[in-house]
């Protein structure tokens, strides 16, 4: 059986009209059909958090959604975080500077998760960061530097938004 549907989605600001088999997950659609392989698939059953994307600004596991369900919605993947090809987002800079990743497999999911967290709570405590990323598994870092990077990113983001607001 190969039921298909046409869907229209906006991914990282780009409009796409695509035909998808109805049983394809959003994660596989992003990776295989749109070629956006920055979204990683670890467990494919909603445990590891590597495939986290933002759906209309809210973090969600893209392995637990069908691509057809994204019809008419807006998606942000790790590829869309940086303002342009030459500049990192302050969150990404903080991860680079604080050694917030080792193998990097979990990083796309952690960055998208933190993007939402820091938007909603610009000055989180260490505990709030730890709870915020509790749905993301990292097997390298022991989370220590991820938490340090997240808190540093919060500081940078507060500074930059403060500077741009008169």
């Amino acid at each position: 059986m190969s039921d298909t549907r046409q869907i229209a989605v906006t991914v990282n600001g780009m409009r796409y009209q695509e035909i998808v088999p109805v049983r394809v997950t959003l994660a596989d659609f992003l990776r295989h059909q749109l070629g956006l392989t920055g979204t990683h698939l670890g467990c494919e059953h909603g445990v590891c958090g590597a495939c986290t994307i933002l759906l209309d600004g809210r973090s969600a596991r893209s392995c637990l959604m069908l691509a057809v369900q994204a019809d008419g919605h807006e998606i942000l993947t790790v590829e869309g975080i940086a303002p342009n090809a030459d500049t990192l987002h302050p969150l990404q800079e903080a991860f680079r500077d604080n050694h917030g990743l080792q193998c990097g497999f979990c990083t796309p999911g952690i960055l998208t998760t933190l993007l939402e967290l820091l938007r909603d709570n610009p000055d989180p405590t260490e505990e709030e960061v730890r709870i915020g990323i509790s749905g993301n598994l990292c097997r390298c870092t022991g989370y220590q530097n991820i938490v340090i990077a997240a808190l540093d990113a919060a500081k940078r983001l507060r500074g930059s938004s403060g500077a741009s607001q008169p």
Binding site: M1, S2, D3, V22, T25, D28, E44, H45
Partner: peptide
Amino acid sequence: MKPPPFSYHDP
């Protein structure tokens, strides 16, 4: 790991 085939309805 992929969902099995099914028909999709969105009432």
